[in-house]
Every structure is written in structure tokens, then in C-alpha cells.
Design a protein around this nucleic acid. Structure first.
Length: 304
DNA sequence: TAAAGGGAACCCGGAAAAGG
DNA sequence: CCTTTTCCGGGTTCCCTTTA
């Protein structure tokens, strides 16, 4: 859908980068998104990328126009690190930008990149990830950002899914050992939050499948589904919200709708008809309206 | 510039469920 | 059954925004 919306800039980066571990917060990542979106597909080398402070603040959608706040953020950005696996099996540790320079009136900022970032942003021919700036710029959770990038990098594969141990997920998502010590918390605050946010704002739906060792969840599959229409979005959104209702509520609705066998209640594939009925029921009861406000400022892309 | 408001992130603990 | 793990409500903290 070609439209000349300036916010429809594309972001391209290597798949390797999409799966790289980093500790940028959501705001810092937004700045990087804006920068990358300025790179043109046929650029051979990095340029200096200049922004007015005003457009940058507007671009990352923070309410304040506090200049020192922006300086703090770019300063912090320079101290952050991407851990990028190299082709020979080594590891490149590199800052997402190499400099941020403010002019004397503090009205513009220019950014530059380390040349070693070239293979991840320039002359990309294959094994790269592409997505729209206007889709990712509105994501609030760093985990939504990271999972979305991973999802987009595999979305076109024959089998768009990936399986990692929880330890690997923690590594990739930069979750420290002392964070989310309980898997249940990691589930609801990392994976389910991202699942809801992506359903709502992006062209990707994520399905997660747990795999246990004994009663402990040890591996997690992430399946990527494309959202290509409003209907698809609605369907996935409702399913996600239904699955995230408290178990008691969910199972009650399922039984009411004619699902059989307590055993199969947790099985998404079983009782498909009853499931649809239960979802409609839950929606009718207003159980889905709890919250999730859209940051719905600027015009909605209104896909197709 | 400070205080108040609001919301997300995080932790805790009892109840429930799962696995053996 | 008993133990381990998960579920989940609710409380606290933290950060950012708004308001005074």
C-alpha cells in the first residue's frame, strides 16, 4: 500500500542484529529506530544523520520538550551495547551509535554509526529484516520491540517458529537473573504483555507453546503469524484476551459453551466450536474491556 | 520546582494444580 | 497423598506527566 506518509519509513537490519542481545530501554530504542529509518536501501556508507531536537522529541513521542532529558537519553544510549555474534563464531560488542553531536544552539543533533555496523544496516541483500517505522515507534515495552524484531526476521520462513530454553530467552531479552525469578511473572509481564501489544499495534501475532521438564516449564516455542487484515487482527486479539483471562473464568465459559472433558479444556485445538462460542460470550460480557489504551494520537495506518 | 496523579513493573504469599 | 511449581490478586515501588 504505497502511501507517501513520512512515518512510513522502512527499517532494515540484518537478521543477526534482530536476534542480538542488548540493554537499550524502550526510549533509546525508539531513537535508534528513527536513525535507522533514515538509511536508504542503496546507501553504500553511513552518513551523518541530523535531526532537529524538536522533531526527535516528537518522533519518539515523549510529552516533554525537555532538552536536558534528550541529552541524558542520548548519553545513556552511548553507554549501551549490542552483543552481536560474528560469522567466525566470535562476538562483537558495539554501541548502537558512535556519537551524538548537538549544535551550539541546541536545536539539532547529528548521529553517527560505527563502521563495524555496516553489515547490519547497509547493502543488505539477504538474511535481513524489514519493518515499518510507524509500527515499531509506538511500542511501549522493550520486550515487544525485541520480540517483534525477532518475529519479523523469521516471519517469511517456511516454519516461522523458534524454540529456546528459558535461559536462552532470558539471555536474548536481557533479563537479569534477579528479574522475574518466577516463570509465571516472566510469562505475564514479558510474553503476554508483548503478545497483547503486538496483536493491537503490529502486523504480527505471537503464539507461545510451553514445554516442560517434569512440572517445570523449561522451553518456550514462539510461533509467528502474520496479521494481514483487520478481521485477522480482531480474531487474534479476541483469542489472546480470552486465553489471558483467569483460568477459572476461562474454564467456566468453556464448560458453559459446551466444551467437554476437563482434560481438554487447556487444549487449544480441542473443542474449537465451544471455544468460539466462549470467546463471543466473554466479549459480550465485557470481559475484554478491562484496559489497554491505545496511544492513538497520530493517524492510524488503517491498513488496506 | 514541587507535589500529586497514574500507570506499569515488580514482588509476595496463599491457593490451586500438576506431576510423581 | 506429598512436593514442587504455577496461578493470580493485591500491595509497593518507581518513573513519568500533569497540575498547581
Amino acid at each position: 500500500m504505497p502511501r507517501k506518509d513520512p512515518k512510513k519509513y522502512l527499517i532494515r537490519q540484518s537478521n543477526t542484529l534482530s536476534f542480538s542481545r542488548h540493554n537499550l530501554n524502550a526510549l533509546e530504542k525508539r531513537i535508534v529506530y528513527l536513525l535507522i529509518s533514515r538509511i536508504k536501501p542503496d546507501d553504500i556508507n553511513f552518513q551523518e544523520y541530523s535531526f532537529t531536537v524538536r522533531e526527535l522529541l516528537a518522533g519518539i513521542e515523549i510529552g516533554s520538550d525537555n532538552h536536558s532529558y534528550l541529552r541524558d537519553t542520548t548519553e545513556s544510549l552511548l553507554s549501551k551495547v549490542y552483543q552481536i555474534p560474528t560469522e567466525d563464531g566470535g562476538l562483537l560488542q558495539i554501541s548502537p551509535i558512535s556519537s551524538a553531536e548537538y549544535d551550539k544552539n541546541n536545536t539539532t543533533v547529528s548521529f553517527s554509526f560505527d563502521p563495524k555496523m555496516r553489515p547490519h544496516y547497509l547493502e543488505l541483500k539477504q538474511n535481513y529484516t524489514q519493518f515499518q517505522l510507524n509500527i515499531v515507534i509506538g511500542l511501549k515495552s522493550v520486550y515487544s520491540q525485541k520480540l517483534y524484531e525477532m518475529a519479523k526476521s523469521i516471519a517469511n520462513k517456511g516454519d516461522p517458529s523458534v524454540r529456546h530454553s528459558l535461559a536462552e530467552w532470558r539471555y536474548l531479552l536481557f533479563i537479569e537473573p534477579e528479574e522475574y525469578k518466577l516463570y509465571a511473572d516472566m510469562k505475564r509481564y514479558v510474553f503476554q504483555t508483548a503478545q497483547r501489544e503486538l496483536d493491537e499495534k503490529t502486523d504480527i501475532h505471537l503464539e507461545f507453546k510451553e514445554e516442560k521438564a517434569g512440572k517445570r516449564v523449561n522451553w518456550l516455542w514462539m510461533e509467528v503469524h502474520k496479521i494481514d487484515s483487520e478481521e485477522t487482527r480482531q480474531a487474534w486479539t479476541k483469542q489472546t484476551k480470552f486465553n489471558q483471562l483467569p483460568k477459572k473464568v476461562r474454564e467456566g465459559l468453556l464448560l458453559n459453551s459446551g466444551a467437554t472433558g476437563k482434560h481438554s479444556l487447556g487444549d487449544v485445538s480441542a473443542n474449537a466450536a465451544a471455544r468460539q462460542k466462549a470467546i463471543a460470550e466473554a466479549e459480550g460480557m465485557g470481559l475484554f474491556d478491562k484496559k489497554f489504551d491505545q496511544p492513538g494520537q497520530d493517524d492510524d495506518p488503517a491498513e488496506e
